[in-house]
């Protein structure tokens, strides 16, 4: 059986809200190492990989690995019923066809439970190799969201190029062109305003802006986002889930016709 008690239950809602527009149904895999989710978006252009470590939970018991298939829209509906400070406990029996969510208020004066129906989902699991990235930029998550939003109003695709001068985001459309350059800034007073660029080799890749914009729905999860790029490979857009795990998005680049 599965029993998992998460004090910061709102983290679950933030994760589901970040991915539910890209993926409609997904398996949440549970094992002794924790919770993980891997799913491609419906167009098979991007891949979501989430992991919440078992030690992130105040109490975690998983007797044997299980895959819980669910509609993320329905899961979002359930999690929306939790208070923002509620403690969330998940319970499921081996081979059961439901999972129960219990929400407890911090003052322990309100307890509710919701049973969600599970479904069988066939999904391919992709192996993601460890990659030595040419360029890694860690920037404020809000800044990333703003760049995606601003550039989306001008064009559909963005060229992200990392050089010693910084990381430049370029788009063009009917209106004209737009460039935003982000430079390293490790002297900002507040740590959440800092930008760190680790460049091993210059790299430039082209991406569909609508996916990069969708990834920014994870902004409430973390102060920073990390973009990792290597030539001719998918970009990895990573949000840390505090010290509990991560939510990673991989997006395939566009190539010349």
């Amino acid at each position: 059986m599965l029993e998992a008690r998460l004090v910061q239950g709102s983290m679950l809602r933030k994760v589901v809200d970040a991915v539910k527009d890209l993926v409609s149904d997904a398996n949440i895999d549970v094992s002794s190492s924790g919770f993980s989710l891997q799913a491609m978006d419906t167009s098979h252009v991007s891949l979501i990989a989430m992991h919440l470590r078992a030690d992130a939970f105040e109490h975690f018991r998983c007797d044997r690995p299980m895959s819980m298939g669910m509609s993320l829209a329905n899961l979002a509906k359930v999690l929306k019923c939790a208070g923002s400070d509620d403690i969330v406990t998940l319970k499921a029996n081996d081979d059961g066809d439901t999972v129960t969510f219990m929400f407890e208020s911090p003052k322990e004066d309100r307890v509710s439970d919701f049973e969600l129906k599970l479904m069988d989902i066939d999904s391919e699991h992709l192996g993601i190799p460890d990659t030595d990235y040419c360029a890694t930029v860690t920037m404020p998550a809000g800044e990333y969201a703003r760049i995606c939003k601003d550039l989306s109003s001008i064009g559909d695709t963005v060229v992200i190029s990392a050089t010693k001068d910084g990381v430049k985001f370029t788009t063009s459309g009917d209106v004209g062109t737009a460039n935003v350059t982000v430079r390293q800034n490790t002297t900002a007073d507040k740590k959440e305003d800092q930008t760190i660029i680790d460049l091993k080799e210059p790299v430039a890749l082209t991406f569909a802006l609508r996916y990069l914009t969708s990834f920014a729905k994870a902004t409430p999860l973390a102060t920073h986002v990390t973009l990792s790029m290597t030539r001719e490979l998918p970009v990895m857009v990573e949000y840390a889930i505090q010290d509990m795990g991560h939510l990673r998005f991989y997006l395939a680049p566009k190539i010349e016709d």
Binding site: M40, H44, V45, S46, L47, E124, H125, L126, G127, I128, P129, D156, T157, T206, A208, L233, P234, Y250, L251, A252, P253, K254, I255, E256, D257
Partner: peptide, 14 residues
């Protein structure tokens, strides 16, 4: 804008 590649073409199915 270039041709969009599938993400599955980069990562092998396990």
């Amino acid at each position: 804008g270039g041709k969009q590649r599938s993400i599955a073409s980069f990562f092998a199915v396990q």
